[in-house]
Structure formats: structure tokens, C-alpha cells
Design a protein around this nucleic acid. Structure first.
Length: 351
DNA sequence: CCCTCGATCAC
DNA sequence: CCTCATATCGAGGG
């Protein structure tokens, strides 16, 4: 049986800001993604625990958050993603020293294989060292879950927050009374479906049975969710390479002007291209209407497209969308996928 | 089997 | 009022 640890930083963005500005410690703190339409347009990325007590959390429009926090000394700060990413990378390198294998799951989360520790007890001791070193080096706290599977390790890291450490030896027992939403991949839509059958606890999924789960969600997802509910999950801890990369942003105003939109998409293309580490064959336009419905248009090339090819394809894809759809666009983005290794030039090509 | 595209998820 | 980003599935077309 493998031993798997899930590390989750506690209110990561907000904690980083508080470290630099200790006077924020006792105040509601809201980290915002400003869209630039006007003062205060945009959404909340995350909030500290004090602000969360007022109901402010990620996804909430900034204007709403401000209303909910009037009469408090709340502080609103812009998201500094690149800066947080630097710190995240350093933390990941620190963790890497302690474990057999590290899989970075997001900017503030990682799975680790610790099978060589041979016991939950040993893994627990190591995880306490990791927590201490992260606190000493970065002044940040994290919550850790340890179990035999990824799905349970992740639920365990969330079980006792902040600064928690939860070790799960009996996964089936641990899961039974937890609400089904704790299972990763079981979001609002799936919860709603299951609620119609009175399924609320994870143990209810076991009673419901695998075949009925498959009827509801299809073979792949149904089987997966049923197995997760039983603490079964054979996903390995492996560092993975990105399979896609995109950038999306809000236009300065809603628009159907093809030149204006094209220019903005090409700006997104520039940002994506600069971050790409590999060549790519597929490009995608992401088009969000003023009513917030999202559309994608993609094209796959035989080899890496030139800027001119990207620009031309973008024009075609965009025109075809605007012909079929009468919405104004609010946000646009550009993505790449289908990565491949840059082919080594043979020696003869240099001569 | 590959391409396109929407839906869903979780961040 | 409504950010930004990634992965995965399934359907439909070829």
C-alpha cells in the first residue's frame, strides 16, 4: 500500500500579503482580480478567515464584497499572481527534499508519495518537519492529509484547517459520514443529481451501488466516483507536464468589432506564446458573451503555426463565430495545446 | 482514431 | 455583478 500525503497551504495568497504587511493581521482581507472595466469591477480570488466570516469568498463580485464589509476596516488588495508563484515554487522545492515523488496540483497544493517511510507514523513525523520548515522559512502554515490514496489524502488535508495534520488509517470508516461534496470531481451538478435520490453522505453512494452510479454519470465517471466513495483510487503520484495553456481577460467594453476583438486575442496569444516551453499544434479561441456563456473555437495544425498563421486562423475562427452568434463579447482568451518536443535539428542542417 | 466543442470541476 | 486557469469526459463528425 502506498503512503500519500496531500499538502494544502492555508489561505495562501492572503497569508503571503499579511506576512509583508503585519498590520493586516486582525483585519478582513480580500484579494481581488480587478477586470479594469471600472473602479471595483472584478471578482474575489480569495479572502482570509476574518473576511470569510462575513460571507466573502472566491468568485464573489468585488462590489458585493465591499457592501458586505462596509463598517469594517477591511482591506482590498490586488492579486499578485507572479509573486505568489515564486514563493510557491520555493515551497515545492523544500517539500521535494523530504519525499519520494512530488506532484504539484496547483499553486498552493501538492501530492507527495512517501511510500518509502513504510508507516503512517514515520510519514506523520516527516510531515511535521515539513510544516515546521515551511513556517520557519516562509512564515506560512499549511494543512496536511496522509492516507493510502490521493482522494482520501486530499479530503484529509481539508479535515482540520488551518495548520492541521490528519492521518487516515481506515479510509472507509473515515469517509462514511462525510458529505458527498468532499469527493474531488463531485461538484454542484453531480451533487444535485444525487440529492434527488436522497444521497447525501459518502456511505449512501456505496449503498446506491456501482451500476446505478454508472447509469447516472456514464461508465467512466460513475465507476470512478463509486470507487472513490470506497476509498479506492489507483492514481499514482507523478509530476505531470502541462497539457494546455491559456490566458483570458475582460475586454475594456463589450464588443462585436472584429478588429478590436482580434487585436485583443492576439495580445492573449503573445502572453501565451511567451510562457510556452514547447511547440504546439492546436490553438483555441475562448469567447465569453456578455451573458457569460462561454464558447471555444479551435484549430489543429500539422506543425507549430507561425504568428501569421495564428493571426489568420484567429480571423477565420472569430468570423465564423460572429456569423452564428449575435452576442456581444465580454471576455476573450487564447489557448494552446497538443504540445510536442522541439525536433532536434540534425547536424547537416547547420552546415 | 483524430478533431472540434460544450460541460463540468476546482482553483 | 460576474476573474482566471486546467483537466477530463462525452458527443458528434470524419
Amino acid at each position: 500500500m502506498p503512503i500519500i500525503m496531500h499538502v494544502d497551504m492555508d489561505s495562501f495568497f492572503a497569508s503571503v500579503e499579511i506576512n509583508e504587511k503585519p498590520e493586516l493581521l486582525e483585519k478582513p482581507l480580500v484579494i481581488c482580480v480587478y477586470s479594469g472595466r471600472d473602479e471595483d469591477s472584478g471578482a474575489v480570488a480569495t479572502a482570509n478567515y476574518i473576511a470569510r466570516k462575513y460571507g466573502v469568498g472566491s468568485g464573489l463580485p468585488i462590489k458585493f464584497a465591499k457592501k458586505m464589509l462596509v463598517k469594517t476596516d477591511a482591506v482590498f488588495l490586488p492579486l499578485r499572481k507572479d509573486y505568489y508563484q515564486d514563493i510557491s515554487t520555493k515551497i515545492m522545492r523544500l517539500i521535494e527534499n523530504y519525499v519520494d515523488e512530488l506532484e504539484i496540483a496547483s499553486i498552493d497544493e501538492a501530492y507527495c508519495d512517501m511510500s518509502s517511510t513504510k508507516s503512517f507514523d514515520e510519514a506523520g513525523k516527516l510531515s511535521m518537519q515539513i510544516k515546521e520548515e515551511i513556517k520557519k522559512e516562509f512564515g506560512l502554515r499549511c494543512s496536511i492529509g496522509i492516507a493510502n490514496t490521493k482522494v482520501v489524502a486530499k479530503i484529509a488535508s481539508d479535515f482540520n484547517k488551518p495548520d492541521g495534520l490528519t492521518i487516515v488509517e481506515d479510509a472507509v470508516d473515515f469517509l462514511s459520514d462525510l458529505p458527498i461534496r468532499k469527493i474531488g470531481g463531485l461538484g454542484p451538478k453531480a451533487q444535485e443529481k444525487l440529492r434527488e435520490f436522497g444521497i447525501e453522505k459518502i456511505s449512501d453512494i456505496r449503498t446506491f451501488g456501482k451500476s446505478k452510479m454508472c447509469n447516472l454519470f456514464g461508465e467512466t465517471l460513475g465507476t470512478k466516483l463509486f470507487e472513490y466513495a470506497n476509498g479506492i483510487d489507483d492514481r499514482k503520484v507523478l509530476p505531470h507536464e502541462k497539457k494546455q495553456l491559456h490566458r483570458i481577460f475582460t475586454l475594456s467594453e463589450d464588443s462585436r468589432d472584429i478588429r478590436f476583438i482580434h487585436d485583443n486575442i492576439m495580445i492573449a496569444y503573445g502572453m501565451v506564446r511567451d510562457r510556452a516551453k514547447k511547440q504546439f499544434k492546436t490553438i483555441s479561441l475562448i469567447l465569453v458573451s456578455d451573458n457569460l456563456s462561454t464558447h471555444t473555437k479551435s484549430k489543429t495544425f500539422d506543425t507549430m503555426p507561425s504568428e501569421k498563421q495564428v493571426s489568420d486562423a484567429t480571423s477565420r475562427l472569430l468570423s465564423s463565430f460572429l456569423e452564428k452568434n449575435n452576442d456581444k463579447l465580454r471576455r476573450v482568451g487564447f489557448g494552446i495545446s497538443n504540445f510536442y518536443e522541439q525536433k532536434e535539428k540534425s547536424l547537416s542542417e547547420y552546415t
